[in-house]
């Protein structure tokens, strides 16, 4: 077994798990802006639960992509080139979502807010769906030739697995967001989030469970089968805990579900990182897709110092913003004052 490529395969699996754990709930909260929140104050409660943390969460997507680029350049090249158009959609979705957070409150009209609420909801949905589709396809394969290039045109990636993976991450993000809102808000929103969580968890986790199971039937190993079964148990525990009102424990149990679920998926496909659906001989593996040991060694040293630092400051962010947000903590709309009021102010001052 090759040590450094294995370490970096695990590192990338950890980064993707971290990304889904963290951005999972903020993508879900974004999607819930339209479906769950009933009025402007509730939308602002939702927005302010993720306001201080969403961009830090998104860094995990960059590091997962960046680590793949540096540690397994051939994996990165084949995956990202084959998925050129879907990843373009993800990029546009992330752009609109990010600016919508900032622009939403800049003009005090319902029409303006509604427009950017749609940008947040749809941006979150397409980002989650696209990331899910890409992750599913890297486990089930793409039509790659001997050179690792996609055969069959811009839409050759499309398959049932792409849809399943997309639905898996969308569904998980929604459940995760409801658990997060129950933990992070107070009052009516908290109560309703817990209700929705209990009601929707069994349905919304079906696609991700189906993905994890189908990977087990394709490449499962005994320990990854065990991980899937434990993951299902963790989901059941999350459901029971939420029913009994233990919001924090329910959130953690759902986190355990995610960690075990992604571990079962990445563990099952190992050592293949991107299978070819044309010919098994063209599969990209941790051996034929990785950088040199020199590069990986250097990256390991940088990561050994950088990763604890990143985790420490991110944990600190969550500590600073640990209080529950409720309708009472939302100030009045930041209404725009016309220049006349401004003049009154300046002549007075």
């Amino acid at each position: 077994m090759e040590l450094l490529p294995t370490i970096w395969f695990i590192a990338i699996a950890v980064l993707w798990t971290g990304y889904l754990f963290l951005e999972g709930f903020d993508l879900g909260v974004g999607m819930l802006m339209k479906a769950f929140a009933r009025n402007n104050t509730e939308r602002r409660v939702l927005l302010n639960t993720i306001g201080p943390v969403w961009d830090g969460n998104e860094v995990w997507l960059l590091t997962a992509g960046g680590a793949t680029f540096a540690a397994f350049p051939l994996w990165y090249a084949s995956l990202f080139s084959a998925l050129y158009l879907p990843l373009l959609v993800v990029l546009v979705a992330l752009i609109f979502r990010a600016v919508a957070f900032e622009y939403r409150g800049k003009v005090d009209t319902d029409r303006w807010r509604a427009r950017w609420d749609w940008a947040i909801a749809l941006g979150s949905f397409f980002a989650a769906f696209g990331v899910g589709a890409a992750l599913a396809l890297t486990t089930t394969g793409l039509p790659l030739n001997a050179n690792g290039d996609r055969e069959g045109g811009p839409f050759a990636w499309f398959s049932g697995y792409a849809v399943l993976g997309g639905l898996a991450v969308v569904g998980f993000s929604l459940v995760h967001a409801l658990a997060f809102l129950a933990l992070k808000t107070d009052g009516e929103v908290r109560h309703r989030a817990r209700q929705w969580f209990v009601r929707l968890l069994p349905v919304l986790l079906l696609p991700i469970a189906a993905w994890a199971l189908s990977i087990q039937f394709l490449d499962g190993k005994p320990w990854t089968w065990a991980a899937v079964l434990l993951a299902v148990a963790a989901a059941a525990a999350a459901w029971l805990l939420a029913r009994s009102g233990a919001e924090g424990k329910a959130f953690l149990a759902l986190g355990v579900f995610l960690v075990l679920g992604t571990a079962s998926i990445f563990g099952a496909v190992f050592p293949v990182v991107l299978p070819s659906t044309l010919d098994g001989a063209f599969d990209l593996t941790i051996s034929n897709a990785s950088s040199s040991d020199y590069t990986l060694g250097l990256m390991s040293i940088v990561a050994a110092f950088g990763l604890p630092l990143v985790i420490a400051y991110q944990a600190w962010t969550y500590w600073v913003f640990r209080r529950r947000v409720s309708a009472a903590s939302i100030p009045e709309a930041h209404s725009f004052l016309p220049a006349v009021a401004a003049r009154a102010f300046t002549t007075k001052g």
Binding site: V107, F336, L337, A339, A341, A342, A344, F345, T346
Partner: peptide, 22 residues
């Protein structure tokens, strides 16, 4: 558009807490 709007509104348009309405 937003920049022009807020520049025309002056400082208090972005920081309403500065406005003392007599």
């Amino acid at each position: 558009k937003l920049l022009v709007k807020y520049v025309r509104g002056g400082v208090v348009s972005a920081m309403p807490e500065l406005a003392h309405i007599p």
